[in-house]
Design a protein around this nucleic acid. Structure first.
Lengths: 257, 257
DNA sequence: GATAAGATTCGACATTACCGAACAGCGTTC
DNA sequence: GAACGCTGTTCGGTAATGTCGAATCTTATC
């Protein structure tokens, strides 16, 4: 709403896509005169939100963002409560687990527990995945009609041959998710990777996050015991967060149905 | 420089300190009328930089920060180059290692390698430590006179009985750091914890980060082999980043001497 | 059910940030 | 080696913009 904040956020967004940009590149990207962009960038720089390349004239994201995000993660009750159960869940199932929340039509991973076998794995905290192509996203959207409408109103990107790009098909998927409190995905985002997710409920009924088990595609479908373990973890975490019932009553959450 | 961005950054800073605040609390903290703060907060909210407590009227930091910081970490060449050597270093020394950069008189940890013994340890990436009370900070300040002056111009907080709070004493410490390319700290920030740090150099001469080995205080002073390992790691990483010489020639970096 | 505290909306005002033009600093080209 | 062009930066006039006070609405408290 406030113009200069909108523009500042736009600059951060641009720098998020292209790691380093000069003033004129930013100006072109924002469709603004360079002098305007210069003022905005300098303001952001003075707060450590962007930094100037040493000795250069290009800018990138700054370390203050890391501190802010570190505090953000600490403020999430869902996350702190989930960590030990996710560790347990990964141990029991031998699979990686992810905890995710909604962010503008995508899912952002707020905690990632590695597969317990010692293989080298990227930490995925902070990674974003399109909602319509992930188990986490399907669960989050199924219980959040406002965001679901938003996502479905735009064209759905196809990431693999399996990605669901038909809005009507996705709506049917959401129906299924609400019936079973279970979201599935088989090589829809990344080839060779499949996952299963369930909602995390807090303060009565609201779905605040989703918890997923991620397995290699050749282990799909997973054993029934994995689903049971996931269900127990999701229910336990939800109870600790003050959920009145789990699975959540989701029959009429999506107003469009 | 731009007022509304300054204020927006101030709001983020306040939310960094107190995890959740209402509009009027923020207004009090910023010494501004509530309606003004409301506009700023709503703008930040529309970009996911802050979020409103579900069903409540308080605000906290938002998930967009996590995505931004995740990209920030990816943009750091120092970090990506250091990770594998830090893993190696932790393996050889049996100690935790940290990589840090300067942020407004503090050090922010941009990568943390756990001690290899299986004990439960917090991930520390994103944590900040006062520069004057850490080995990382001493190294960074010793090679950066501008920030050193800035830090010394303000009173130095005492974190433990060992914290150096006398500016003159710190300047002498910096001299020593530049002679040996080695910063030390023994229970100056956290009781029971000691560390040793060395500079990481990139693009010729500029010190862009510092690398530390962290050990329990009762293992202090560390064996000479640890210092050797650290030196080799710091030199190797620096060379990969295009350093012309290591240790850096630091004799006259601090203009005040 | 009444009261109060806080959040939110709205509109007039003047402060504020925006923009164009001029300047400076480099690297490149001829 | 000089002129050019590109990019970043500075500056000041202008009007668009964000700010602020009062009014309204919402939620918690007693």
């Amino acid at each position: 709403m406030i113009q200069s904040i909108d523009r500042a956020a736009g600059i951060l967004q641009l720098l998020q896509g292209a790691r380093r940009l000069g003033i004129s590149e930013l100006a072109a990207g924002m469709d603004l005169p360079p002098s305007t962009v210069h003022g905005l960038v300098k303001s952001l720089q003075s707060h450590g939100l962007v930094v100037q390349e040493t000795g250069g004239n290009r800018y990138g994201l700054g370390p203050a963002l890391l501190k802010l995000s570190s505090v953000y993660l600490d403020t999430l009750d869902v996350r702190s409560r989930s960590i030990r159960w996710m560790h347990e869940l990964s141990g029991r199932t031998g699979a990686a687990t992810r905890l995710g929340v909604e962010l503008f039509g995508e899912v952002i991973v707020i905690h990632h527990e590695r597969r317990p076998d010692g293989t080298e794995q990227m930490p995925e905290t902070g990674v974003t995945i399109p909602s319509h192509a992930s188990a986490l996203g399907k669960v989050l959207l199924a219980y959040d009609s406002a965001h679901a409408d938003d996502v479905l109103s735009r064209p759905l990107a196809s990431l693999t041959a399996e990605t669901i790009v038909d809005p009507a098909a996705l709506l049917r998927v959401f129906d299924g998710v609400r019936m079973t409190a279970l979201g599935l995905e088989h090589e829809e985002a990344v080839i060779g990777e499949s996952s299963m997710a369930m909602p995390i409920v807090a303060d009565g009924h609201s779905v605040v996050a989703a918890l997923a088990v991620v397995v290699p595609a050749d282990e799909w479908p997973v054993a029934g015991s994995v689903e049971t373990e996931l269900r127990m973890a999701a229910r336990t975490i939800s109870r600790e967060l003050g959920a009145r019932s789990w699975p959540p009553a989701g029959g009429s959450q999506n107003s469009r149905l």
